[in-house]
Nucleic acid binder design. Structure first.
Lengths: 141, 141
DNA sequence: TATTGTTATACTCTATAACTATA
DNA sequence: TATAGTTATAGAGTATAACAATA
């Protein structure tokens, strides 16, 4: 393994990209039945955890642009999983919450994510998982 | 931090995605002058390390589809950084190598990557970097 | 039959810019 | 002025399917 001059295997960014790709691929292969992308699951999850959340809150939590967040919210709204309501205190804001269908979908998604995480974590001890999460958190702040 | 019911912070895949996003963002912000994407740098690097490499080799090394690899090789060829030559032993294969311009570009890219990696690694000890790479490698195999 | 390269196609993610409405 | 949402647009990454040439 490894090239001769450059040794790309010492490049941390390269490993992060490959690991991300592997996780994305496993997700895509096993979540076709769910009909949701990774991002859509995250938004559904965060909305279920905190009903009334605004798009700008979601964007900050997921470190995404407002426009990117819009696209995902639109998709979930189009599937009838999320509904929007104007804020009573600040009419610029839209409060998001799950529909009944969205809550059911989130339950399915949580079960699917649990299986996905089990696959991902099977190669680590509990201490290693904690360590990995802590190290990654230092990168994304 | 953390939601109430789900605790998305315990989801490893979520942290991998956020870390990947943070690295991508830093790359995009600091590599505009180079005129290359992360993937293009990787292909340039691997080609420089192993002249005569085929597209299928690159695809395997970077865990990408053949079609995706094509797009990146095309872009590099269009910039005059890579040249292709039919293999002498297997005429299905195309051997890739750097042009003089490509070799120069790779030198610049390596310097830029070194700065990028320094930014990324500044938050870790040397032992932690080794640990993180080892853990990530278990994910992407 | 299997492998390599190629093209066409489509979807997701990401970001920028400009606009509207509200604070 | 600043913030939240919206829309349009564009580029990057990813993958599938189908085809040609070669092994």
């Amino acid at each position: 393994m490894g090239g001769k001059a450059g040794d790309i295997d010492a490049v941390l960014g390269f490993h992060i990209r490959l690991a991300h790709g592997a996780v994305l691929r496993h997700f895509a292969e096993h979540f076709a039945a769910l009909g949701l992308t990774q991002k859509q699951v995250s938004v559904l999850w965060l909305t279920g955890d905190k009903p009334g959340v605004s798009q700008i809150d979601l964007a900050a939590r997921m470190q995404m642009d407002r426009a990117t967040t819009m696209a995902i919210v639109h998709a979930l709204e189009g599937k009838g999983l999320i509904e929007r309501r104007a804020s009573a205190t600040d009419r610029r804001r839209i409060c998001l919450s799950l529909t009944t269908s969205g809550a059911n979908k989130l339950d399915q998604a949580r079960a699917a994510i649990a299986a996905h995480e089990a696959w991902l974590k099977q190669r680590f001890s509990a201490a290693e998982v904690d360590m990995l999460i802590e190290l990654l958190a230092r990168i994304h702040g």
